[in-house]
């Protein structure tokens, strides 16, 4: 199996082939909830920004990442408010407590399930048993976390944003002279919505494009809006 990093690389390579910037799968197009405000627990977003060097390596940038994390959370809050939902922020419990262990297991399970969705729904051939279905689940244990926060759903967000360094721009221009396309910065990510009563993954969206900038509030808001296109709430 590919690790998370490997999957992301696969996605970057599939970027050129993919027609659209964002694609999503869902169990239900729209979630029923009457007049009630939905409480969505935002799991700690996994955001990382970096710069593509001339030679094509990615240098992680802590300063940009810290800025982007704030912008992403603010943009998510805004997007959910527009959908009559409230964002509840997740806080990791103290390490090594029984509570922490339960939470960790759920997060790790989501990582594993999410990786499978990414791999089999977006990149490589679908699993024979899931070809025409979207019925992934984390199981009813997810209820424990939902109960604790009084939340109906959990939202997982993963974003990687890279920017082209001046050196890389020079390489891209020179390579273009030779008729070779060299990739620069890219924005990739995914988000998933989990029902905290059943553990079912309700919606899963993937973003992959060569534009976007999480370092400024307005561009970050645009990225989050694009990622949440077709959000079922």
């Amino acid at each position: 199996m590919l690790g998370r990093g490997g999957l992301i690389t696969v996605l970057i390579f599939s970027l050129a082939l993919a027609g659209c910037e964002v694609a999503s799968f869902y169990a239900k197009e729209k979630l029923e909830r009457g007049n009630k405000t939905a409480h969505v627990l935002l799991m700690t977003p996994d955001v990382q920004l970096g710069e593509v060097t001339a030679g094509g390596l990615v240098e992680p940038n802590a300063e940009w990442t810290a800025i982007a994390e704030k912008h992403v959370v603010a943009a998510l809050k805004e997007q959910l408010a527009k959908r009559k939902s409230r964002l509840v922020l997740y806080r990791s419990p103290k390490a090594d407590t029984p509570k922490a262990r339960i939470h960790t297991q759920l997060i790790k399970l989501h990582n594993a399930v999410g990786s499978s969705i990414l791999l089999h729904k977006f990149a490589s051939p679908p699993l024979p048993t899931k070809e025409d279905k979207f019925d992934w689940t984390l199981g009813p244990q997810a209820r424990i976390v939902g109960h604790e926060y009084g939340a109906d759903y959990a939202l997982f967000v993963y974003l990687r944003d890279t920017y082209t360094s001046p050196g890389r721009v020079a390489v891209m221009v020179l390579a273009a002279v030779l008729g070779v396309g060299v990739p620069g910065g890219a924005q990739i990510g995914f988000a998933s919505l989990v029902d905290l009563k059943t553990g079912d993954v309700l919606w899963f969206s993937r973003l992959a494009r060569a534009s976007g900038d999480l370092r400024t509030p307005s561009a970050a808001a645009e990225s989050v809006k694009t990622l949440l296109k077709d959000f079922p709430l």
């Binding site: 001339a54 030679g55 390489v171 030779l178």
Partner: peptide
């Protein structure tokens, strides 16, 4: 090592382009 890898790969890509040109 990171800085070293960075400058090595940077030099390499320009060399490759130069050689191809």
């Amino acid at each position: 090592r990171w800085r070293d890898a960075k400058s090595t790969t940077n030099a390499l890509i320009f060399f490759q382009i130069g050689a191809a040109l």
